Computed example of a mutant assay.
Amino acid sequence: MSTQPPATGDWHAAWSAALDALEMDVATAEEMLSGDHRNQETPAVTGAWTPPADLGPLPLDLRPRADAILARQLAVAKEMVLIMVGNRRQAAMIARVETGSDGAARPVYINCAA
């Protein structure tokens, strides 16, 4: 069973819809990273984006939009990595404060005078 590529208008509409979905995902991620939303409950991830089947090549007039969405996705990914690194550093610092140690072995003295 072979599938035909969408007609030109349908092909453009299919790509526009796919880019709309990507743009909504990146907007949601950007909103979650904003200062107002960092401490709030975040929605569950619905899964990785997969391109619609038989989408065909990207129409040339949609290339600038696709490039802009990709740039936003990369910026969000970079910010997420920086936030995760900061969270790990903060957790390590809090662990040191709670234990009073930097993780190194502490000397133990035993009073053997009797």
Score class of each variant (00 low, 15 high):
V45I: 07
E23Y: 01
R38N: 07
T42A: 11
L60H: 08
N39M: 04
R63K: 11
V108L: 15
A92P: 06
A29P: 03
E98D: 05
T50D: 13
S2G: 02
A95T: 11
E30T: 13
W49R: 05
A71K: 12
S34R: 14
P5M: 13
R72L: 14
L22M: 15
A75C: 08
H37K: 10
H12W: 05
P107V: 07
G47C: 08
R38S: 09
T3L: 13
Q4N: 12
R89L: 07
L60K: 05
Q4T: 11
L62C: 03
V97T: 12
L22A: 15
A18C: 08
D102M: 01
S16V: 09
Q73T: 09
A104V: 04
S16A: 15
T46F: 02
M93G: 00
P59I: 01
A18D: 03
S2A: 13
H37V: 10
V97I: 14
G86L: 04
L60P: 06
S2N: 04
P6D: 11
T46G: 08
D67K: 01
N39P: 00
Q90S: 14
G86F: 00
D102Y: 01
W15C: 00
C112K: 06
H12P: 01
A29E: 04
W11T: 10
H12Q: 12
G47P: 05
M24V: 11
W15Y: 08
M24A: 15
D61G: 04
A71N: 06
V85C: 02
R96P: 06
A92M: 03
A7W: 10
E31C: 10
E23N: 15
P43F: 10
E41W: 09
A7S: 15
G35Y: 01
A66N: 10
V108H: 10
D54R: 07
E41C: 00
Y109H: 03
P107K: 11
A27P: 10
M80R: 15
V108C: 08
A114R: 07
G86M: 09
A17W: 11
P51N: 03
A91P: 04
A44P: 06
C112S: 05
L33I: 01
L82G: 05
G103Q: 10
A53W: 01
I94Y: 01
A113E: 04
A75D: 14
V81G: 12
A21G: 12
M24N: 10
Q40Y: 03
R72C: 11
L82D: 13
A18M: 06
A27F: 02
L70T: 11
S101N: 02
G9E: 15
T3R: 13
D20W: 00
I69C: 14
